[in-house]
Design a protein around this nucleic acid. Sequence first.
DNA 1: CTGAAAGCGCTTACAG
DNA 2: CTGAAAGCGCTTACAG
Lengths: 349, 349
Amino acid sequence: MYTNRRSPRRHPSLKDVALAARVSHATVSRALRNVGRVAPQTRAAVLAAADRLGYTPNLIARGLKNGATGMLSALVPGLSGPPVSDMMSVVNEELERAGIALQIHTSSEDAERQLEKLRLIRGSSDGVFFVPTSDLLVRGRDDLVQATTRQVQEMGVPVVFVDRYLEVPGAGVVCTDNETAAYEVAMYLISLGHRSIGYLTGPAVSSVRERLQGFRRAMAEAGLAYDESHLESLVADSYEAGAEAALRLLRRAQAITALVTYNHNATVGTVVAARRLGLEIPGDLSLVAFDDVREVSAIQVPLTYVEQDVVSIGRHAAQLMLDMLRGGPPRQIRVQARLVVRQSAAAVR
Amino acid sequence: MYTNRRSPRRHPSLKDVALAARVSHATVSRALRNVGRVAPQTRAAVLAAADRLGYTPNLIARGLKNGATGMLSALVPGLSGPPVSDMMSVVNEELERAGIALQIHTSSEDAERQLEKLRLIRGSSDGVFFVPTSDLLVRGRDDLVQATTRQVQEMGVPVVFVDRYLEVPGAGVVCTDNETAAYEVAMYLISLGHRSIGYLTGPAVSSVRERLQGFRRAMAEAGLAYDESHLESLVADSYEAGAEAALRLLRRAQAITALVTYNHNATVGTVVAARRLGLEIPGDLSLVAFDDVREVSAIQVPLTYVEQDVVSIGRHAAQLMLDMLRGGPPRQIRVQARLVVRQSAAAVR
DNA sequence: CTGAAAGCGCTTACAG
DNA sequence: CTGAAAGCGCTTACAG
């Protein structure tokens, strides 16, 4: 790491202000935070001195003393990519109001790195928001999942899973009710007369698994023959992989009249594939997506999609964390999504 | 803020390890960090004890002592939105290798909040990466710009501007050579025979201003009559605003055969507008964009675009910060962009 | 090689 | 109302 030497022009400390205001640094501390009994004029003098010196408290030191760092961490797969980054954006805003800074760590979708980060975070955070990596890289590594789970349990500070979760007793969870949302998507397509419905899915993180479950439940309830030939998985999270998966599925199961896509790249990929196969959306193929893809909606066809309530999720996550920091119980919160009906799905013809 | 009470099961400290290993905590400190002279067996005993107790250092305390927090901050307009979030992603990765965590603060494109954040960061960071807000909200608020500039000067820790900058002596800067990039874009279109070229621009942040300058320089050098009627600005950063701006421009200056778009939403908006006007790209209208829009390229037409070297920018930014932390001089680094020629721009017909 | 001590910048009982 | 003192968890000269 870089040198420890302090910057040449040292930032003023409590002591400096105390010296300038001719009082003890304890008094400065009280005056500045407006706690305890401080004479009005003393307070005024302190404030003036602090202002003149451009004093700002050293949060690090305050944190050390308080046994709280005043800082929360988020461990996420990556910095970009909706809807997760939108959720974290809301979390960040909510925290701001409480005067708490959010420190962001990324696992880069690498489960080993994720585990290290978890350990690292431990010593310098009052709590962590956790969006675990998809298991693309964890397949066959149950040990890693186990170790991660154990680490979360032993964090010693509150952990709130956002968007997706691991099964860890004591951890909070805030995410979309994916099972219900997918159930409703399937029911909607069935109500439009579709009988052969394809589904594009991805890595087995909780959200993705639950979506598939909801979809299957709907198919079963509707008494529709549903077999694995209607299912295809993306091998990577790119639109090219989405297009390939869609192509495989549409070529194999030609009876399919509607398709459900589990995420952004599956959706874009499907639009690309449809184009390549000369299929019109929704004329030849109905499409219902999870999450809108604004660019597609703007220039191709307004997507019928599941809108996750990212604002509500972010707020609940922040609030739950604050609760847990005060000793509140970990809760598992499900936020309902909304099916936005536009033009990419139509009645079967 | 939340309560200061320590979590029930306290995290083990150096003292706990010392007690368990039957040595002083100073020795534990040395053994763990592998500095100073420590007897091999003492070291082994300490490591064993630390491991058994699940000790991890309290970075806060270490930071206090070192006079460095081991933490860097980034102040950005928002969490999402390429290419800035990609640049910061790279910065983050680079820092990780140096064992430094990045704390992210957002200004939400609000210049007042940005100023507050700057003050807040001051006490708890060894340095800050700064992506200033666009001035959409600062128009007519020179005082705010001044105050922000002054604040940056008085930070007392290194500041590195990324992607765009304010004029502040002593601050580092890493960004694309926007002037040159835009110049090349214009020259490319001119070489294709275009004479009437439109330009969609945005708020007056440095990057956007420089792009327009480069564009104008090329037009002037080519001896092309260039007047403000070929220019249009987005009133907001949304694709709807982009579409409106493009519509205004294309309706007003019908001689235009090519358009340059300064960012993502201007590009998407242009594609939407062209569609609405029944213009084919590139048949009726050539388009060169700043930054690719993958969705557009995938489903509409592969964009000819300026590719910013986000990896290089991120790396340089991280490296410059590390240099400055060691006392190195602030540098202004320009990274060359690359014109990726694909299909959205063609010879004029 | 190891320990006792001082100190980083703060907060908070405890006296007075 | 205010100050002196202790202590948060660490690191680092300084002795020994």
